[in-house]
Design a protein around this nucleic acid. Structure first.
Lengths: 223, 223
DNA sequence: GTTGAAATTCAACGGTTGTTGAAATTATGC
DNA sequence: GCATAATTTCAACAACCGTTGAATTTCAAC
């Protein structure tokens, strides 16, 4: 017997990451046991600890794995977007550069990426980790997008742009979460797992949201 | 001794609800133990179970308590909004009617309401409960707001309105979550606990997002 | 094939979880 | 004041948690 040799070594690390990714996304950090992860991955209970250390480090490893891929893809899209528009890109094209890596090729078809997106939704809305982890893994790249947006709308205050990005982030991550609520609310009219449809709507909605801050009117009186 | 009589009976029920609300919002359902809740509420470990049954029922009770208050306030605002505009209110006024109950009077000052909002953010983005609980507690009222929005924009397809509400919901709940991420991302320019500022920006952003679907152009080609 | 390192299994540890039944306390109706 | 019910306390249950050290197996180098 020499079949599962060179393959199974690496396979087990990624099998653990895949299983942890799926479970964490579905039930949250505390809702998942190492025993459930190990069983899903088809490995011994002690193996996750052997490869990744304590549970919290495994969680970080899951987050880190695809964050690097996503950040690199986003930066490439942003560079191309800026280059192809003589230095001052449109708001819509910046948003498209921000969203496009999320639905290219394997990202829409592979279940692993969908699980990862749902996990991001969980982390982004968690008071426990949202501040720390999102800042650590994603905000360096986000800042470059904000810089580009400021360049695209130089007359808009920075505060307004940060708020607008915040709303974009919320809309995006709720769509990631795949709760199925929109589907039932709309009586089946909308399918939240149709990422292409979701993002086309999101681009229109958020682009208009950003652009509205060009008009100088400050705060209206509430009520 | 006859001081803690009529008072403490009711107080213990609400003390448990308050403590559970705070803990669930901060750490999620599985991140909280009944012992932590009981300790925070200053009651015996067995008391939560005595009043509310198993842990899951306590969670539902926490959600239900303020949901009824919020739903009633929203319906009142919607009625007033429709009545004061001769039957066809503006999109902006509908959104304001939807958001205004969140920052009236005690809701901004009481910490209990802020905890509840953070809990909603957790539930709304949870694949585990987002579909079931949000639909159960909030969607009947949401449907009435959608009806009003359809009336305000009769030329827009229902699908587009449902998507737009979905993005509004995501933006709103992320703001609820109070992760502090926006604060650090903006270098202190934005304070996410300033609900008045948050909602004034949210009204502008989301109103523009809804209105953009009036323009008949369908899906643009991505890329 | 032998040797040393890496990978995997196994069993168990101390600690914590939600839940519960029985006892003790307090309030309520007569 | 007494009996009845509601409330609160206490102790403990069985089940499960993350983690680990030792034993076992598999691998790689010579």
């Amino acid at each position: 017997m020499s079949l599962p040799q060179e393959e199974s070594r690496i396979d087990r690390r990624t099998a653990i990451l895949d299983a942890a990714e799926e479970q964490f996304a579905a039930y949250g950090y505390d809702g998942v046991t190492l025993r459930a992860i190990a069983k899903k991955a088809g490995v011994d209970l002690a193996l996750p600890n052997y490869y990744f250390g304590p549970k919290r480090d495994l969680f970080d490893a899951v987050l880190m794995r695809r964050a690097e891929i996503l950040n690199a893809a986003r930066l490439a899209q942003l560079d191309e977007c800026i280059a192809s528009s003589n230095g001052t890109p449109s708001v819509e094209n910046i948003i498209r550069a921000f969203l496009r890596p999320l639905l290219t090729g394997e990202h829409v078809s592979e279940q692993g990426w969908k699980n990862y997106y749902a996990l991001i939704a969980y982390v982004n809305n968690s008071p426990e980790w949202g501040g720390r982890l999102m800042t650590q893994f994603f905000d360096p790249v986000i800042q470059k997008f904000i810089d580009a947006l400021r360049l695209a709308m130089p007359e808009v205050e920075a505060r307004d742009i940060y708020w607008a990005y915040h709303f974009l982030s919320g809309a995006l991550t709720l769509t990631f979460a795949q709760t199925g609520r929109l589907d039932t609310l709309s009586g089946g009219l909308c399918r939240s797992d149709d990422l292409t449809d979701a993002f086309e709507h999101m681009v229109r909605f958020t682009t208009a949201g950003f652009e509205t801050f060009r008009s100088g009117q400050k705060k209206r009186r509430p009520r």
